[in-house]
Design a binder for these strands. Structure first.
Lengths: 239, 239
DNA sequence: AGCGCCCGTTGATCTAGATCAATGAGGATC
DNA sequence: GATCCTCATTGATCTAGATCAACGGGCGCT
């Protein structure tokens, strides 16, 4: 069964939304849909950049590591996001599936060529890259200067914002519930903290009725204003 | 005196290198050369994105801050670098001159329009943005997971690499001398450390004969291999 | 030359968060 | 339903780096 761009679920949100029906048929020939199991890597840090892809389903983490095993998560990818390093020869980070996922893969050289011939596509790619750059720069402030309390609060707000448009979020007078797509260690690797510190900060927020934790994966924001204050200035009034 | 792209000193290195003589004349009309004194801001964090520019001369820092004054430097700009946020309405960071500088300014709307009409220019911009994204992601690992010793060593190597092609670098059997374009506080704000910690790490490297510090601004790398080892694994063998 | 001033260095102490160490709470397997 | 097994929480202690506090040295100014 061939993949078919016309009935692709991320067609209208991915960079491919820049293409008209004819172009969609053309790009379809360059493409191959691939399933990736949770935990499996799509790209390895340091590898030559041979493929790029669109995320169709699931979730991925981008990571950079030191030899002794310390790891930093430098980005998260969801359906419709673009993966890989076009116009460059090395991948500076690994891309690993957090859940069973599907991606739509291009050979990098095919993709580079196709992009150069389709300025609207290149424009979409530029916009995404600029947005991602803004996001990454925001996290530099978090990693370089924020306290543990500020980091955890900022993280919860960002996750809630990012998962808001997807299914399970209920916004009723600042009451929000969402499921983290990963465990505590990954949260720690996003925030540049240890698992224990993340856990302690979360229970602190729970004790102060800023959030509720129905179970290990779900988070409910009870007081978004308070959480925002903590994210910006770290004012935790409790013991 | 009008600015003239044809005799621009950064013409061949900036994004404008994508333009042919006719296009250069066209873009020249959109452009205004502006001098910025050291310490003066070109763009403020949170401002609407009304201008973009090319750096012609001098140096700039990009910063993001918290209300209580904590600051993180999230990027440095040198001649030929591009500044500002095209295709977006907010600047998420401030841009401040580190030295007396000159920039070539565009109104953002003029620039956005011109770029859309010149795919080669947009391509250059995309390449720069992708390269910058790689750089910024590398610093996420530094800020999130590296120790003070590793950060300082990584910083010195990156500065030496970046300043290598410019004037004053002397590469004689891994012997390199360069001048930092800023003081200790700025180094601390780049590395997410305090000024005292930066100072202590530098004197430690000096005591171990890994670097020499002729004066407060100049750094000489005596043992680049050793410095690289420290940057990657923090192995400081000394007291 | 002498006087401040700014910036960097050095030292002493403190603390946020890391590390080490149990303990507990689902979730899958048989 | 008992047995693991993995992952989160909680507690006790340690430490890298922050904070607080002198001190010093280069540079511009009169």
């Amino acid at each position: 069964m061939l993949s078919n761009c016309e009935q692709c679920v991320v067609r209208n949100k991915s960079i491919c939304s820049a293409l008209d029906p004819d172009e969609l048929i053309a790009i379809n020939r360059l493409t191959r849909k691939v399933a990736i199991k949770a935990g499996q890597a799509l790209i390895w840090e340091g590898d030559d950049s041979l493929i790029v892809a669109n995320v169709v389903e699931g979730a991925f983490k981008l990571t950079s590591s030191l030899e002794d095993g310390r790891e930093q998560i430098i980005g998260l990818l969801y359906p419709s996001d673009f993966v890989g390093r076009p116009f460059g020869d090395k991948n500076e980070y690994s891309v690993t599936a957090l859940a069973d996922s599907k991606v739509c893969v291009f050979s990098r050289s095919d993709f580079d060529e196709f992009v150069r011939e389709h300025p609207d596509l290149e424009h979409k790619l530029l916009q995404r890259t600029l947005t991602e750059l803004d996001r990454v720069r925001r996290s530099m402030l978090l990693l370089g200067r924020k306290t543990a309390a500020e980091r955890v609060a900022s993280f919860l707000l960002e996750m809630s914002a990012r998962l808001a448009d997807s299914s399970c979020s209920v916004v009723g007078g600042s009451l929000q519930l969402f499921a983290l797509p990963f465990g505590r260690q990954q949260v720690a690797d996003i925030l540049g903290l240890t698992i224990e510190t993340v856990s302690r900060q979360l229970t602190l927020l729970k004790k102060n009725n800023v959030i509720a934790l129905p179970d290990h994966r779900n988070v409910q924001i009870l007081d978004a204003g308070r959480l925002q204050d903590i994210a910006d200035a770290g004012a935790v009034t409790a013991h």
